[in-house]
């Protein structure tokens, strides 16, 4: 029984790690390349989860591919609208708009009880299938999540090396100079927002199918900020960084649960840990945890700079 319990905990951690990695990495495309601090990623993730909840519960389909496609279409439409918004308003104003979208999207979903199930959420969701094969074992879920993670990582690697990725980085650095190179910014922005939203929504489908539950509270502003924190703590523009950030979240949560604290204390302690990490990383490792190897060098440089002054 103990062995079974342990494997369950570990598979939960693995699943969390993979899903958070996929969602964080997709957010990193927007933050790291387009340099738009998008706060609404949790809402897109949630859109995917509720797409599965609605489709599976009403018996329309519990096929992960079909539900994934449906979620992708919805998330792409929402993302394109937000991409247009980010062209009209930039910088801090976009952050506020993105935050507002996150807040109102989840609030609207919460009140649309026929879709979201209100405060209780949609629960008892049927187990999913892929092309007729039932996904019933934890190993099968992990396999699907791993495939999604590999595909997302593959896209990230392609972005790093491709001419398209070069344009995205150029857009983040100096959009007006990119115009004088003959590239419109609109298409690039819509593209990267769209891809990012689609990946988050597909991850949401898998997440809801795995948990068998979809609740709006899961995808609220707290998660939205946590996702940004994962990206920033791990390292903006770095896939390895997103993996480190996701691992941190995936391991800290169960470790705290092991301490047998009350749920509210656990949440508070967790927030404290992330707040401390965020401050520490921003102060010591401006490029995120991926820079960890350079820490001694950075500290040396800092202390030398201090003594020379």
């Amino acid at each position: 029984m103990i062995v079974f319990g342990l494997t369950l905990v570990y598979s939960n951690i693995t699943m969390q790690l993979l899903i958070y990695f996929v969602v964080a990495l997709s957010l990193n495309f927007v933050i790291g390349y387009a340099r738009a601090l998008s706060i609404h990623h949790a809402a897109l993730f949630g859109i995917g989860a509720f797409t599965y909840a609605v489709m599976a519960q009403r018996g329309w389909s519990n096929d992960l591919i079909l539900c994934g496609l449906a979620a992708a279409v919805i998330a792409a439409m929402v993302s394109v609208i937000l991409a247009f918004g980010s062209l009209r308003i930039s910088g801090d104003y976009f952050i506020v708009a993105s935050f507002a979208f996150q807040f109102f999207a989840i609030e609207a979903l919460f009140n649309w009880t026929s879709i979201s199930g209100g405060p209780n959420g949609d629960y008892g969701l049927p187990t999913p299938t892929i092309l007729g094969l039932a996904i019933s074992s934890t190993a099968a879920y992990i396999l699907v999540a791993a495939l999604l993670a590999v595909a997302t990582l593959g896209f990230a690697i392609w972005l790093r090396r491709s001419p398209y990725g070069r344009l995205l980085r150029a857009m983040g650095d100096a959009p007006s100079a990119l115009l004088t190179a003959g590239f419109g910014v609109l298409r690039l922005k819509v593209g990267v927002f769209g891809i990012s939203g689609i990946i988050a929504a597909v991850a949401g489908v898998l997440y809801a199918a795995y948990l068998g539950v979809a609740q709006t509270a899961t995808f609220d502003v707290n998660l939205a900020i946590l996702l940004v924190a994962i990206v920033v703590i791990g390292g903006t523009g770095s896939a390895v960084g997103s993996l480190l950030g996701a691992a941190l979240i995936a391991f800290v949560q169960p470790l705290l649960t092991n301490l047998n604290l009350s749920a509210t204390t656990t949440a508070a302690v967790q927030q404290l840990i992330f707040a401390a990490l965020l401050v520490g990383v921003v102060a010591l490792l401006p490029r995120g945890l991926v820079q960890l190897g350079d820490l001694p060098k950075l500290v040396m440089r800092r202390s030398r700079g201090g003594s020379s002054r």
Binding site: W158, S162, P163, Y164, R166, L167, R169, A170, G172, D173, A174, S176, A177, L178, A181, G182, F183, G184, R187, L188, G191, I195
Partner: peptide, 28 residues
């Protein structure tokens, strides 16, 4: 100046040498 500051000199110039089609996801 407005260079693409995080990119190498080589990549800065490559952006200006790329075809218009490379600005689409389809190009890949």
């Amino acid at each position: 100046v407005r260079l693409f500051d995080t990119m190498t000199a080589w990549d800065n110039i490559a952006v200006f040498a790329q075809t218009e089609a490379s600005g689409t996801l389809r190009s890949g």
